[in-house]
């Protein structure tokens, strides 16, 4: 069912059909990936050239989006600017670096890291095991199951490391212990323990699933003959 076309698909296949929301300027803030020329279809050909159609079309040609889009962004920039003016009253250059760096850290730092790690994981598991015969029509490649039973605990463990990095790496140094009377060195062993538990649980689950799949195959075997 997941491949069924959506009931009210916005970008209907028929370009001349005057898609239902071409007049709905409210959502034309859509960041269309269709490329520049694709935007021109938003101007419906069959619509009779009313008195207000020409300026609207001209606006769209010049600006590329609806007037509502411009209005919403200008209002937003006014608020952002008012706050940014205050935000940057300190060390404005360092704050700007942090702000822009924050915007890019996921896409330019984290994605290559976890994307690369995932690629390596796939390579490693692919080399390690030959594709076993599928357990049934519904069963996916067992190597993918292996990948996912490593992927999920690794994701959880790395997520905890990311969020609690300052604690785990004891970045606050002696300050944490001096102000709170708590032991700053507790976090690293705890994270390692949680990681071990996550991988162990995933391994157990994997073994259980393989065992149940094998049992199912054994049971199903004779009846299929």
């Amino acid at each position: 069912m997941s491949t069924a076309p959506p009931p009210d698909d916005p970008g209907g296949p028929d370009p001349t059909g005057g898609s239902g929301d071409s007049g709905d300027s409210g959502d034309s803030g859509d960041d269309s990936g269709g490329g520049g020329p694709g935007r021109t279809r938003q101007t419906p050909a069959p619509r009779p050239p009313g008195p207000r159609a020409r300026p609207a079309r001209l606006f769209r040609t010049l600006y590329g989006e609806s007037p509502f889009h411009l209005l919403a962004l200008l209002a937003s920039f006014a608020l952002c600017g008012y706050a940014a003016d205050r935000l940057l009253q300190g060390d404005w250059w360092a704050i700007t670096e942090w702000f822009v760096g924050a915007a890019l850290i996921h896409d330019l730092v984290l994605v290559p890291l976890y994307g690369g790690a995932d690629w390596l994981l796939h390579r490693g598991v692919g080399k390690w095991g030959r594709a076993a015969p599928p357990d049934g029509p519904e069963r996916s490649d067992p190597r993918i199951a292996v990948v996912n039973h490593i992927r999920v605990p690794a994701f959880l463990s790395l997520l905890l490391l990311l969020v609690y990095w300052p604690s785990i790496a004891q970045r606050a140094g002696g300050y944490y212990a001096a102000t709170t009377r708590l032991d700053a060195s507790a976090f690293l062993p705890r994270w390692l323990l949680v990681t071990a538990v996550l991988f162990a649980a995933s391994g157990l689950l994997f073994a259980l699933r393989r065992w149940r799949a094998a049992a199912r195959t054994r049971r199903a075997g004779p009846t299929q003959e």
């Binding site: 940014a84 205050r86 970045r171």
Partner: peptide
């Protein structure tokens, strides 16, 4: 919350004004 004050300035103005910049967008 992890007492790692590496950000460029006092937490209060950074977090408060930063929140308004974010919320505007």
């Amino acid at each position: 919350v992890q007492l790692d004050y590496v950000f460029p300035g006092s937490f209060y103005p950074l977090h408060f004004y930063g929140a308004w910049v974010f919320f505007g967008a």
